[in-house]
């Protein structure tokens, strides 16, 4: 019983962070039709951001706030310098952001070295949860992820900015005809999506080994999550990440993490292949 509870808590932790990653990917794809292959690196940048700010002597909480913002700024620069030049060319957005991911990854190697770093976990101790002792920081990670997800939904469905974003997603030209600055929304969206990845990396930084190649391990599950559930809505990545994350956790509990990941990937590929709603959504956008 106690093991099951811990397992559930750990799984929720992983799932919530994966949701954050997928949500960023989905927001960028939905609005801009850009497949962001550098999303994993944005996450890693968030973790390195915390590492660096911690070295500079900032308290952990401040790092958690500033690092995602820095990543959002990097996203903004990437959008302006690179990504906006490949709009309307879906496959080229893959290549351009893929190139960006290579550069970012190697840039991190140059600055921080190829090895992995550990971010000092904030000492928050443990608390009893339903009779089990559980690290407080992991609960904080869950709360922050859930809050960021809720915030994203709030922005999209309750603010003027979100309304404009939804209009652009539905019909970019008509939105512009109503005076909506679609360029500005593209910039904001990309920065926001990058910031979400940065936040995921920042909150996870004390729990993972921070190394330049960590991004890919998040990118692929993130993509599979949004494809599995289907594109075209914000709840898609949430549902997809829940599915992918749950299968991953379950399989890992039964076998090893490596086999779990293989199971998830293969299962996701099969789902993507045979469940057309995701495919249909992409085809509609490609047309």
């Amino acid at each position: 019983m106690d093991r099951i509870l811990i397992f559930l808590l750990d799984s929720s932790n992983a799932i919530l962070v994966l949701m954050l990653v997928s949500l960023g990917l989905a927001v960028i794809f939905g609005l801009m039709n850009v497949i962001n292959m550098a999303h994993g690196e944005f996450l890693v940048l968030g973790a390195y951001g915390v590492l660096t700010l911690q070295w500079a002597g900032l308290p952990f909480a401040a790092c958690l706030v500033i690092a995602p913002m820095l990543v959002a700024l990097i996203g903004l620069a990437a959008e302006e310098l690179l990504i906006r030049r490949t709009y309307e060319r879906l496959l080229d957005t893959i290549l351009a952001t893929w190139g960006l991911s290579l550069v970012l990854r190697q840039g991190l190697v140059l600055i921080y070295g190829p090895g992995s770093h550990a971010v000092a976990a904030p000492d928050m101790g443990s608390v009893p949860v339903f009779g089990e002792i559980y690290p407080v920081y992991r609960l904080v990670v869950m709360a922050l992820s859930a809050a960021a997800i809720a915030f994203t939904f709030w922005v999209f469905f309750r603010t003027a900015l979100g309304l404009q974003a939804r209009a652009v997603i539905a019909n970019r030209n008509m939105a512009a005809c109503l005076g909506i600055n679609t360029r500005m929304l593209d910039r904001l969206t990309f920065a926001f999506g990058a910031g979400l990845a940065g936040l995921a990396g920042a909150v996870m930084s004390p729990l993972i080994s921070v190394d330049p190649n960590a991004g890919l391990g998040w990118l692929v599950p993130g993509f599979l999550s949004i494809l599995v559930a289907g594109l075209g809505s914000l709840s898609g990545p949430i549902v997809g990440a829940a599915g992918v994350g749950a299968v991953d956790s379950l399989a890992a509990a039964i076998s090893s993490p490596v086999w779990a990941q293989l199971t998830v990937f293969v299962a996701a590929i099969i789902v993507i292949r045979f469940f057309p709603q995701g495919l249909m959504a992409l085809k509609r956008r490609e047309a």
């Binding site: 497949i35 879906l90 496959l91 893959i94 692929v220 993509f223 599979l224 494809l227 990937f265 996701a268 590929i269 993507i272 292949r273 995701g278 495919l279 992409l282 085809k283 490609e286």
Partner: peptide
């Protein structure tokens, strides 16, 4: 599978 879907699935593979 077409376009980006094919790309992502081959990457996962």
């Amino acid at each position: 599978l077409t376009g980006a879907f094919f790309g992502i699935v081959t990457l996962a593979l």
